[in-house]
Simulated assay, not measured.
Amino acid sequence: MKFNGECDRVYLNTTSTCTLRDLALSRSIQISKSNSQCTVVWNPWIKKSAAMADFGDDEWQSMVCIETANVALLSQTLNPGESHVMTAAVSLLP
């Protein structure tokens, strides 16, 4: 996927590893995960970036957020004392 505007996408039923290809730096960044059924990909683009107090107006150009998640019908409900552990491992590939 290439960004050409604001992106805030939830991918359900995704347990596989994600690979981000950084063409500018000739590298790939790999995100593997466990106990996560969803992936969220986010970039605020121009307008939302300018409206965020804790985000530089031009920072949207050099970032993407790839989140390990369990959302919507795949969310986890925990009772007191219960836990759920998700992991994300980020690797830099040549």
Score class of each variant (00 low, 15 high):
residue 81 G to N: 07
residue 68 T to E: 03
residue 55 F to N: 11
residue 7 C to V: 15
residue 36 S to H: 00
residue 62 S to K: 07
residue 26 S to T: 09
residue 9 R to Q: 15
residue 65 C to R: 11
residue 89 A to L: 12
residue 11 Y to K: 01
residue 49 S to N: 05
residue 20 L to K: 06
residue 31 I to V: 15
residue 7 C to G: 12
residue 7 C to D: 12
residue 80 P to T: 09
residue 48 K to V: 07
residue 38 C to R: 02
residue 62 S to Y: 03
residue 16 S to R: 00
residue 68 T to P: 00
residue 37 Q to F: 05
residue 65 C to A: 14
residue 19 T to H: 00
residue 50 A to R: 13
residue 58 D to N: 11
residue 2 K to N: 14
residue 92 L to Y: 06
residue 9 R to H: 15
residue 77 T to Y: 08
residue 75 S to V: 11
residue 57 D to R: 11
residue 65 C to W: 07
residue 62 S to P: 02
residue 90 V to K: 12
residue 27 R to W: 00
residue 34 S to F: 06
residue 22 D to R: 02
residue 73 L to G: 15
residue 36 S to G: 03
residue 19 T to E: 07
residue 59 E to D: 13
residue 69 A to I: 07
residue 7 C to Q: 12
residue 39 T to P: 01
residue 59 E to W: 10
residue 10 V to E: 07
residue 64 V to K: 03
residue 11 Y to V: 04
residue 38 C to P: 01
residue 71 V to T: 09
residue 35 N to H: 04
residue 32 S to N: 07
residue 54 D to Q: 14
residue 2 K to M: 14
residue 57 D to E: 14
residue 29 I to A: 03
residue 11 Y to E: 02
residue 93 L to Y: 02
residue 18 C to L: 06
residue 47 K to T: 11
residue 4 N to C: 15
residue 10 V to D: 06
residue 46 I to A: 08
residue 16 S to V: 06
residue 44 P to Q: 06
residue 52 M to K: 01
residue 7 C to S: 15
residue 14 T to C: 13
residue 84 H to D: 04
residue 30 Q to D: 04
residue 60 W to T: 02
residue 84 H to G: 06
residue 65 C to I: 09
residue 80 P to D: 07
residue 84 H to F: 13
residue 45 W to K: 03
residue 35 N to L: 02
residue 22 D to E: 09
residue 42 W to T: 06
residue 19 T to R: 02
residue 36 S to R: 00
residue 34 S to H: 08
residue 66 I to A: 06
residue 42 W to E: 06
residue 90 V to G: 10
residue 18 C to T: 08
residue 4 N to Y: 13
residue 4 N to L: 14
residue 18 C to G: 02
residue 90 V to C: 14
residue 35 N to G: 01
residue 69 A to C: 15
residue 88 A to K: 08
residue 68 T to Y: 03
residue 93 L to D: 03
residue 30 Q to W: 00
residue 35 N to Q: 08
residue 71 V to F: 02
residue 59 E to M: 14
residue 50 A to L: 08
residue 64 V to S: 04
residue 68 T to C: 12
residue 69 A to S: 15
residue 8 D to Q: 10
residue 53 A to L: 13
residue 9 R to L: 12
residue 41 V to L: 09
residue 11 Y to Q: 04
residue 93 L to H: 03
residue 32 S to E: 11
residue 41 V to N: 03
residue 34 S to K: 11
residue 4 N to W: 08
residue 91 S to T: 15
residue 63 M to K: 03
residue 52 M to E: 13
residue 19 T to P: 00
residue 24 A to P: 12
residue 79 N to H: 05
residue 62 S to Q: 05
residue 55 F to I: 12
residue 52 M to V: 10
residue 42 W to N: 08
residue 89 A to G: 08
residue 71 V to D: 01
residue 13 N to D: 07
residue 58 D to H: 13
residue 25 L to K: 13
residue 8 D to Y: 12
residue 38 C to F: 02
residue 6 E to H: 15
residue 74 L to N: 13
residue 84 H to M: 03
residue 26 S to W: 04
residue 67 E to F: 07
residue 81 G to E: 06
residue 12 L to Y: 07
residue 71 V to L: 14
residue 44 P to K: 04
residue 92 L to R: 07
residue 40 V to I: 14
residue 19 T to F: 01
residue 57 D to W: 04
residue 11 Y to H: 05
residue 29 I to E: 01
